[in-house]
Structures are given as structure tokens and as C-alpha cells.
Design a protein around this nucleic acid. Structure first.
Lengths: 142, 142
DNA sequence: ATACTTGCAAATCGTTTGCAATACC
DNA sequence: GGTATTGCAAACGATTTGCAAGTAT
């Protein structure tokens, strides 16, 4: 299942982000950015941990958390808050919004152009808009 | 500070929601729906607890949590998720969106009409839209 | 009287942290 | 070699839960 160029540009990518390309960071990058479902992945720490273990990658959950946070700070990931008490990380860092399936807890990108705010209200004085999140919460029918 | 009609329609409101109007539920309703800042309040459990204690209302934090959840289920409150690890409850149950001040963790309503989605993408097959949340994240300038 | 609520303390969940061992440059 | 990173286990903060005691109808 491993390709011929196992680490393509991932090492560079990590270095550019100011992160040492360690074994675990590389392996996780691979899952996140080149794995099944990339480039539009939405993972929780637990999920990624399970996936790593399933692929024979030995990483502690603490490292998963640390890595996800570092990647987020470095701009490689984006954190999405939809549920109290659980964080999702999105491999798509561009401007876009989300569908959230309430039943299964699954998150899905909405292509950037298909939601358009007609008018974003002016930010209150002394504040500036850092980001606009649109979450369309879905109920799954049987 | 207590008015002449201390419980106005709150008892009815609770009864209609299928909740017994107990001492603590009434007191909390009063803070939430008739207190300072009503009818547009955004509280965390901790905040409401502190406020209750400050007003001489003896309630346990567990009861605050249970009450907020019951009120939410009953449609008297709406839960807003903006930060990982902290839940806000909104006394405004109508359709509307929020400004979120990242520095202070303060939440503010945006009047319903001033944000308009130009086109809400169709829900994926087998799912229907339950709610659309728009959160405008603000950075406070100095 | 009966069923529902409350408070407390303990339990749980997701996440973070301290620190000794280990890997990277 | 020196610094950054990892893993483990303990610590944490927010929230939930079990159960005995109290309260509403």
C-alpha cells in the first residue's frame, strides 16, 4: 500500500512549518494529507490515533494531540468546533464551510463558493473579523 | 431589586415545558429570562452558577447543568458551540447568528436579518437541514 | 403518597502537562 | 552534544451520574 515516493514533499512541508520531521509527525502527515479521503479530511484525535495504530504506527494519544495542535498553529490544519467536548481538525485550510451530520458526528466540506453571505454585518467597533464559520447542521433521515 | 410580580409568567412557562416549577428552576428562569441583559443572554454553566450564588440563590453546579440541559431540550434555551470545551446557552431561541469575541470569550447576537445566506447548498441526499449556524469570529484590537 | 428534583461526591470524557527516555541535527 | 520530541502517567477542566434526602402535586 506504500507508494514509491513515500514521503514526497512532506518533509519539506514540515520543515517549512518549523517542525522537525520526526517519525510520528511524518507518519501522521501521510495519513492526513495523503491518506484515504485526503485532501478533505476531518478527524478527531481519537480517530487519528485509531487509524495510526491500525496502520502499524506506534504513537501515543498525547502525541496525537500535540501534533494536531502544532499542525494547526503552523497552518497545516484548521480546527472546527461543532460539538461540545470534541474537536475536529480539517485538512482543508482554505476558506470554506461545513455540513455536520448530527447523528453520526460526520463533518463534510461545502465547496467555498456554494455558500455566500449576502452581507456580513460590520464588526463592532474595536474588533475585526478573523473568520466566518458557517455550519449547516443536518438530520439524517431513515 | 425584586419586582412586584416576582414570577410573572415563568411558572406557566415551566409548566408548559413539562417541568415542575421548583424553587431553583424558577430562580434560574428569572435570572435567565428577566435578569440583567435579558432577553439576549449567553451564559455558561459556571457563569450562571456564580450569578445565582451572588444573588443569594443556593443551587449546586450539577443542578445548573441539569437545568440548562432540560431548558434546552424544552426549547427555552439554545446551545451555542463556539469553543472546544465550553458550552454557551442562549436565551434567544429565534433564528439568528453570533459574533464571538475570541479574546474575551464573549458572545453577541447578530440580528436575524442582517446576515443572509445567498444560497444554502442543498442538503446531501437522505439528510435535511436542521439548523444553520453562522459564527463571525472577532479579534479585539487594542 | 408518589414521583420528580436536588445536592453532593464520585465518575467520566476529552484534552493537557511534567518529566525521564529517546530521536533528530 | 545539545535541543526538540516522545510516551507514559498523572493532572485537569468541564460535564454527567448514582444515590440518599428533600419537595411538588
Amino acid at each position: 500500500m506504500s507508494g514509491t515516493r513515500p514521503y514526497s514533499g512532506l518533509i519539506e512541508r514540515l520543515k517549512n512549518a518549523g517542525l522537525r520531521p520526526t517519525r510520528q509527525r511524518l507518519a501522521l502527515s501521510r495519513l492526513l494529507f495523503e491518506g484515504e479521503g485526503a485532501p478533505d479530511r476531518h478527524v478527531t484525535a481519537e480517530q487519528l490515533h485509531g487509524e495510526a495504530l491500525g496502520n502499524g504506527i506506534r504513537v501515543s494519544l498525547a502525541t496525537i494531540y500535540n501534533t494536531l495542535n502544532q499542525f494547526t498553529r503552523a497552518g497545516l490544519l484548521r480546527e472546527v468546533v461543532v460539538e461540545p467536548g470534541r474537536s475536529y481538525f480539517d485538512t482543508n485550510v482554505d476558506d470554506h464551510h461545513h455540513f455536520f451530520f448530527e447523528g453520526s458526528g460526520r463533518l463534510m466540506d461545502i465547496p467555498g463558493e456554494s455558500v455566500q453571505l449576502q452581507q456580513v454585518p460590520a464588526a463592532p467597533a474595536g474588533a475585526k473579523v478573523r473568520r466566518v464559520d458557517v455550519i449547516i447542521r443536518l438530520e439524517e433521515e431513515e
